[in-house]
């Protein structure tokens, strides 16, 4: 990435963490993360289990708020605005920063209503049928379900359910879509479809994906952040080792631990 000026870099950063630490009660789960997420790019978080990559992801749309005792220190900014400042409504944050989970979790409603749900709670003023079709097309699910929009979302296959969840997330028109290991419950063909989808979606959205699968990171991500964990009081404490353009992280990392991890020496 070559930028013309410092301002270009500034406007391209959509989410930034500054010395962000995340606690569960007294236990420090993630320590001192400094990270920039760039607009319309796919950023992958990789690292061994317990390194806090999912925890960091969830703090971007304040889903961690739902866990009792969870606390964020340092700053997390979205367009320069502190997401954890007192006057920020977490509900509004989640409307701008959507999320797709590890296990597909469609609502027990029809395919149509799954998509329309988010739009309805946001009082979407436009044509609902068009929105549903557009969202399903963007999630490349339209051809699979166009004849069964009134069928239950749960009647779809696992891969289709996950694409339905992606369509549901983008129907709210967020700017960022967080994906927490979205393919770990899917077969290889469905996984491939979702990966292709991510390449299309980054034209419109910024995507952050947590993955256990390093090949997946090399296939989909423009940037990759490597997290590691160290033993600490009360369990493992995660920290960010480095974030680089994906090619560079896998082929020419700066840190030895990154090199050890991506070459399969641990993790």
């Amino acid at each position: 990435m070559v930028y013309d000026s410092a301002t270009a870099v500034e406007t391209d950063t959509i989410i930034r963490t500054e010395n962000t630490s995340i606690y569960y009660g007294d236990f420090k789960a993630v320590s001192g993360v400094n990270l920039d997420i760039y607009r319309n790019k796919v950023t992958a978080f990789i690292g061994p289990s317990g390194c806090g990559k999912s925890t960091v992801l969830r703090c971007f749309n304040r889903t961690n708020d739902l866990i009792p005792g969870c606390r964020v220190e340092g700053r997390v900014t979205f367009h320069g605005e502190d997401l954890y400042s007192k006057d920020i409504d977490p509900v509004q944050v989640r409307r701008r920063i959507g999320m797709v989970f590890q296990k597909p979790n469609p609502f027990p409603k029809s395919v149509y209503d799954n998509i329309a749900y988010g739009a309805r709670i946001n009082r979407y003023p436009g044509n609902m049928d068009e929105l549903v079709e557009r969202s399903l097309r963007r999630a490349s699910l339209w051809d699979d379900v166009k004849d069964k929009l009134q069928a239950s979302g749960l009647s779809l296959s696992g891969g289709q359910q996950q694409r339905l969840c992606i369509a549901r997330a983008i129907a709210v028109e967020p700017e960022v879509v967080l994906m927490d290991e979205p393919c770990s419950a899917l077969d290889p063909i469905s996984t491939l479809k979702i990966e292709e989808l991510m390449n299309d979606l980054k034209q419109l959205y910024t995507i952050i994906i947590v993955t256990h699968n390093m090949q997946q990171a090399t296939r989909v991500a423009d940037y990759t952040a490597f997290y590691n964990a160290q033993e600490a009081k009360g369990g493992k404490m995660g920290y960010l080792v480095e974030v680089l353009p994906t090619d560079e992280l896998f082929n020419n990392p700066k840190e030895q631990s990154t090199k050890d991890y991506v070459t399969g020496r641990f993790g």
């Binding site: 889903t63 989640r94 609502f107 988010g118």
Partner: peptide
């Protein structure tokens, strides 16, 4: 996951309870 899914779409607690 149902609750999480609804919350992640920007639903308030009441919208989650009443509609999901």
């Amino acid at each position: 996951e149902l609750r999480l899914g609804a919350m992640a779409l920007g639903a308030t607690r009441w919208e989650t309870i009443l509609r999901v």
